[in-house]
Design a protein around this nucleic acid. Sequence first.
RNA 1: GCUGCUGUAGCUCAGUGGUAGAGCACUCCCUUGGUAAGGGAGAGGCCGCGAGUUCAAUCCUCGCCAGCAGCACCA
Length: 656
Amino acid sequence: MIKVTFPDGAVRDYARGTTGTTIVEGISRSLAKKTVAMRWNGELADLSDELEADGRIEFVLRDDDAALELIRHDAAHVLAEAVQELWPGTQVTIGPVIENGFYYDFYRSEPFSEDDLRAIEKKMEEIVDRGAAFTREVWSRDEAKKVFASKGENFKVELVDAIPVDQQVKIYKQGQWFDLCRGPHMRSTRDVGKAFKLTKVAGAYWRGDSNREVLSRIYGTAWANKEQLDQYLTMIEEAEKRDHRKIGREMDLFHFQEEALGSVFWHPKGFRIWRELEAYIRRQLDADGYQEVKTPQLLDNKLWEKSGHWGKFRENMFVVPDEIPSTEDDGPIVSGEANLLALKPMNCPAHVQIFKQGIKSYRDLPLRMAEFGCCHRNEAHGALHGLLRVRQMTQDDAHIFCRDDQVTDETRRFLDLFARVYGDMGMTKISYKLATRPEQRAGDDATWDRAEKALADALTAAGVAFDIAAGDGAFYGPKLEFHLTDAIGRTWQAGTFQLDYVLPERLDATYVGEDGARHRPVMLHRAVFGTFERFMGLLIEHYAGRLPLWLAPVQVVVATIVSDADDYARDVVARLQANGIRAELDTRNESINYKVREHSVGRVPFIFVAGRREAEEKTLSIRQLGSQGQTIKALDEAIAALVADATPPDLQRKAG
RNA sequence: GCUGCUGUAGCUCAGUGGUAGAGCACUCCCUUGGUAAGGGAGAGGCCGCGAGUUCAAUCCUCGCCAGCAGCACCA
């Protein structure tokens, strides 16, 4: 006999080998009907598992949140069966659960079309209706490989080989169809239900390796019921309306064009936001002991060779021959024999050059060198994505040269700055990741051990919780990544904090210590926004274009109702502008309804309406974006209130 | 860069093997209207680029370029 403990604390005896199904059916018919799986000692498991020892049991009902993962996983299997039924000969590979859904990768010569998706959905519904039970078998490795090989499922054979020797090779069957799978699954395909939808097809590399086969990936979403599915689909639609590329066009902030792929044409309104952000972050850096510098755009490749960029980062660099281009009509424009220069992809080597001018003493450390450095990176065409992935970017970059024993303090100091800035920006959903040594790297393992430990220790000391992103570090050192989420749930790395022992070594940066000897400084690479481009993209999506007043490109529009109020409105705009407010005048021959609509759609935070009455009484009818009504204020009062409101948060703090 | 989809007016999108349409925006006219679109008229297009098929191509075929989604890569 074995002892089974229930969630309410009750303990009952069952025969060894009893299944979850038997237990739940013994409790109540109605509970058994809703139960699709169980947790055995906290682990999700098949209801049909035979229980061999004492343990805790919990039943997973189909409506539980925990069941969503199972619904999606089972949906992936149903998808795979449907595809193989429709197109025999298609090879199956893997089909995991992802956030909000699942996907399955297939190998076949013909691509899937949108129409195919609808046909597959139909077939999936059929399979759900069939309600074939999921049953599990354990096969020997050789048997599994033989069976999959005989079916021409070469990817599955590779997967069987990849299963660690101490793990069983498990096969899940649903009717005639079966798949290699870790499990667990629900009772039958019927439990998947019909609240699913196939959303898109895309290419993906086998095992994520760009040198391997390209597979056709079908993405789907699945939920417990139709309401949840609809809610999700609506959410996606709403999120797409926040796309910064769309809003950027609507608000006339920036544009891209073919002649400058991946580089931004900032329009006056977009650049207003930039300037406001730059002024803000410069105030923070000044207050935090940074010194601002400006370094060259084009540098000889010999420097990049020394720094290691030429070896490890070259494919991301724009290279320029150092010669006068030929003006002859025929013949080559460049000889191909000139020295090469590169547009800087990073500012760090140049900052080391400034550090190396003169002799630095330990008394000079920590030395915090900041630059709004404009960098170019030759990103793959397919990687470009609006403001979030560009080829010309301006970082709010800085490098801190310090001693080993100052790393912890400097890390904490930076994390404070970071938290303050993101708080001011209204962005609170940030996740932290410690990215460790990549395959392509400079520096020996001992140095990396030291660097990773130093950074992890500093983070722990600062009380920051973080995940590990193995292998994602920069080639010269580990980094702390700050991830923000865009409108449709994609996460993007914004700020960064990197610890580097390698570059000071390679570029021979030294300082004179208390002992009179030369020592290597540690370099901390750090950026708060990351780049202005990406950060502004994220800000636009975060606020859906309705930026806080201090960042809004146009803070107020003064709109007239009748032309008799034009002179008064002009006067109001002049006074607002004299007070540092970004105000525009709208005296067009249009109805006030039209003007209010247009500026509301344009996301202008305040509309000051001036009619005959306001002009006579020296007042304004104030309408704030997002509210229905309006309030009347005296002119002076209205200006004073707006000026106070439009003050950047850090200056408000200072004043208050 | 890889896979798939898409490319028609400034924007959003219809459409056809016989050289094109709507709404909004734009210009002009009428209208001076009290808080999310007052009325009318007009202008605007190498139908992404290049080749091919055809009597004829915006439409069919191929190549290229770009955009989008995903992958890979990354702030």
